[in-house]
Design a protein around this nucleic acid. Structure first.
Lengths: 331, 331
DNA sequence: ATAGACAATGAAAACGTTTACATTGACCCT
DNA sequence: AGGGTCAATGTAAACGTTTTCATTGTCTAT
């Protein structure tokens, strides 16, 4: 059915070894035979089996990619960016969706480990131990997550993160300058490193300025959950900062349903800037943490694991139209 | 480094063949040794190589998935749905982004063909000949694309499409009822089957009701292109129907910039309904062609290629707030 | 008691490659 | 002329599995 290198060799009248050498451009084969083999390969539409090759060379030409939730645009953008740099090298991409579940993530990892050259774990929910264990078998790029401070970091592990500090700090400054003294944070998944990171930054910034902070958990960081949680907020909430843009848009949606005018009666700040500008209305003030940049950085780490052991992409506040001054009565 | 079945066999004191049988649950192995082998495997944290297995069994446990553009939410949703049904069977997923380029698509196909059991081509830009050629090697699911009518369809090919007719027909009825007699269609990529399909449906519906239709090409079916093209529309355009939601949102964005009030001065209709309801404002009237349903159908076709040779998901019009009555002066 | 059946296991081939090592000549140098 | 070098090719092992076929031994039926 599918043609093998053995058939190509036969057609060209050479041994299987010579055929292999000819096709891989080894200098040890004379030009005339090289041409003859190439011709035979073309005629038979030969397509080398990646399986056979991988088994003997020990390198598959694939990488594995595991996210907590593929339908989240933040990860989609990350994927798109990573794909375009990696695919140029003719590297295949295996993806897996862990559905925010560390067990599922671990099982995907097991599935992939035997058929990829390296692994990118995005916002991994696994334990440090699980991650470092994987990194002894093959190079691992940890994206949007960092091992606990002080851990010994395996040779083969890279860590690529988003530095949320400047963005969140600027967001609180911005809100403070508008006169707000209280804000509500809609928190991300408990097991998420980046959620903890964001919460910590926000807490620091609020403490610094003496802003009152109340933290509300959100089950799943998506549009629908944002919509739900916004329905049960303390009625005199005037500022909402959300773990990501999806949640913020959910809040916006509920505000519209209830006739709460943003940014007059309510200010909303998102995080990620993963959506096209102006997609929502009013346009969302957000903490830009470009997932595309994160993807680009991860791609570099994948391509040369030795060099890019660590990297971070900065965040900044993008002020649009969903934040406004505190109303005098509320200050 | 990584433990092989040979080591497991050694540790359990059996031959490699018995180890294999024990682990794959063959009835030919006695319970006591089965346990012993399992124990050894667990102790050594044995993880069978998919490569080795694939080579001999001829089945890889992976499927390949090729889209024209991963960052498009329509495809992301499709992917998410397909993933969740397929992953439950412990099937791996290789993805590729063709970037709307048929050459790139063909080369991805070559890369994948040797390491997957079947292939899903989404909105393929390749020729019928290329597609049918692939379908002789392995099962192919053609999603959002159909071979030219009258083609002989290979055994291994399934075709899963969206039936745009009812949705577009209803959209034109809706607009007609609102008093509109002219509309502008922002067309999709020239090489896209679904773009031709949508255009044809729209043309038929307009002809039926005597509505004047003008068709404007859009380079790339995304937000930014929609924004651009909306800037150069005939100034007395009052209705825009877009190839997809992204483009429609781009139009909405430009309208806002120019102070054109939707739906008072302009009606906008999207297509796909790939975004969370109410994400845009005004909420987009759209032709719902659930990419999730398409993904679910494709998943079924992948799992039992014999049965689901063909399928289609219907469309319907979802009226929201971006369409309104024609203004008297313009009828 | 002995042949035959059958259950449990082992030996080896196979999948499609790459590559280390062996073989063949042709040529050059003395 | 004959040994040595080197370039071109061939042979065979290896990668990690599964599976066919062969082997061993135990048990049953005559």
């Amino acid at each position: 059915m599918t043609t093998t290198i053995r058939q190509v060799a036969a057609a060209a009248g050479v041994s299987l070894a010579t055929a292999s050498r000819a096709l891989s451009g080894s200098p040890a084969v004379v030009e005339s035979t090289r041409k003859r083999v190439q011709q035979a390969a073309d005629d038979l539409d030969y397509n080398p089996s990646r399986l056979g090759r991988s088994l003997v060379t020990g390198s598959t030409g694939n990488i594995g990619l595991i996210f907590p939730d593929i339908s989240n645009p933040f990860y989609t953008q990350f994927l798109a960016e990573l794909e375009s740099v990696v695919a140029a090298r003719d590297i295949g991409i295996l993806i897996g969706d862990a559905h925010e579940d560390s067990h599922r993530e671990a099982s995907l990892l097991r599935q992939m480990v035997t058929q990829v050259d390296s692994l990118v774990l995005v916002s991994s929910r696994m334990t440090d131990a699980q991650i470092t264990a994987a990194a002894v078998r093959l190079p691992v790029v940890l994206a949007n997550r960092r091992l606990a401070p002080g851990s010994i970091v395996p040779e083969l592990l890279s860590q690529i993160v988003i530095d949320v500090e400047p963005g969140f700090s600027a967001a609180v400054d911005h809100l403070y300058a508008l006169g707000h003294r209280r804000l509500t944070y809609l928190d991300g998944p408990a097991r998420s490193w980046s959620a903890r990171e964001k919460r910590a930054s926000l807490t620091r910034a609020c403490a610094r300025l003496g802003v009152d902070l109340s933290i509300v958990p959100v089950e799943k960081p998506d549009f629908e959950s944002g919509r739900q949680v916004a329905r049960h907020l303390d009625p005199n909430t005037t500022v909402v900062v959300a773990f990501n843009d999806q949640v913020a848009l959910g809040v916006l949606s509920t505000c519209r349903d209830r006739g709460i005018v943003v940014p007059v009666n309510m200010s909303v700040v998102g995080c990620d800037d993963s959506l096209p500008i102006g997609l929502a209305w009013p346009a969302l003030t957000t903490i830009d943490s470009s997932s595309r940049s994160l993807g680009a950085l991860a791609a570099q780490a994948v391509l040369n694991p030795a060099v890019h052991r660590t990297g971070s992409v900065p965040t900044r506040l993008v002020v649009r139209e969903s934040t406004g001054p505190a109303r005098p009565s509320m200050v």
